[in-house]
Design a protein around this nucleic acid. Sequence first.
DNA 1: CGCCGATATATCGATCTGATATATAAGTCT
DNA 2: AGACTTATATATCAGATCGATATATCGGCG
Lengths: 182, 182
Amino acid sequence: MEQLSATAYVILGMIRKEPRSGYEIKALVDNSTRFFWAASYGQIYPELKHLSEAGLIIGSDSPTGGRRRTVYEITADGEEELRAWLRRPPQTFEMREEGLLKLFFADALPPGEAVAIVRAMRAHRLEVNAQLRSIEALKGEIEDPYPMIVLRGGIEFTQWFADWCERMEEEILAAAPEKRSS
Amino acid sequence: MEQLSATAYVILGMIRKEPRSGYEIKALVDNSTRFFWAASYGQIYPELKHLSEAGLIIGSDSPTGGRRRTVYEITADGEEELRAWLRRPPQTFEMREEGLLKLFFADALPPGEAVAIVRAMRAHRLEVNAQLRSIEALKGEIEDPYPMIVLRGGIEFTQWFADWCERMEEEILAAAPEKRSS
DNA sequence: CGCCGATATATCGATCTGATATATAAGTCT
DNA sequence: AGACTTATATATCAGATCGATATATCGGCG
């Protein structure tokens, strides 16, 4: 069996507790792992077929009226594969933060304009922070503690990042004080 | 003129101060922006051609002995384009952190095994932290302060993340104390 | 009844990664 | 000198991924 993509494990993890459709998986991802691991329909649907052929999940027709719908549940092999993956050390760590890239090149701008970049980054992080807090507020008591740990991690991280931006704004202004009032 | 990719701006920023070859640009990226914005040869070389056709950079042959080599310098249009991009608000914010994904699904493992995930994440972040510190140590006094601000940000972030992992390790152990000695 | 938003699946161009291939140059070891 | 390794330099390609779009049905609302 060739190597599965990380998206495959997202699917396995998302359907482990109860069967779900591709659409539901996408919605779940968008409300939970999106901030550190996204997935698009273009990945999910082909991967569902692939996992189904590999015998790690089983799809069954479950139409709602005349609208066709296939829900997938995990097999014993699928659970085994998921646990084996969880036990392997994580491989992928990536970040793409256009604001940091712009800050990196900010010397190309007239002195003082760099603060606009850190202000934009800060505003964005605070926005995400608020989104995560609202998701946190929705969740009640649940037996599985890990999603909540990760969610709170995201809240702490975005807050930390926003605070860093604030500190950098002051540092940059201290070096170009003539722009403080703008 | 159609929209340029962010990689195009990486190139423009990297050659702004002095002309460089594709190979040098890749090496620069790997030593600086890689942690928040990577670029591969598969992006850089086609983009160099593209930017050259668009008149934003100019390539000139500069062979080393019998080995062909093309160095690119930025044009006035290229500098203008770079500044215009710097002034637009950042659009892309992505993170792919396989460790957080595994932690999210850690409920599929027997109690106690989740700590291995946060330990692996912590070890990795401390490794990157050490790399960044060694890069920081190399740089002497330079007139452009922004790359150093971003580098120090990376050092602070990796440290923060490692500390968060440490806290989560304790939190998880507190919930499954029977595994403390493992 | 008609409209809109949610559910559901599918696809496609563009981008990006990671690996690999092909050369030449320069340095190192014996 | 000859052999070997690493660095320089460019190029390409399969596979993963994104973001947008297309198609269709369902449920609710006025």
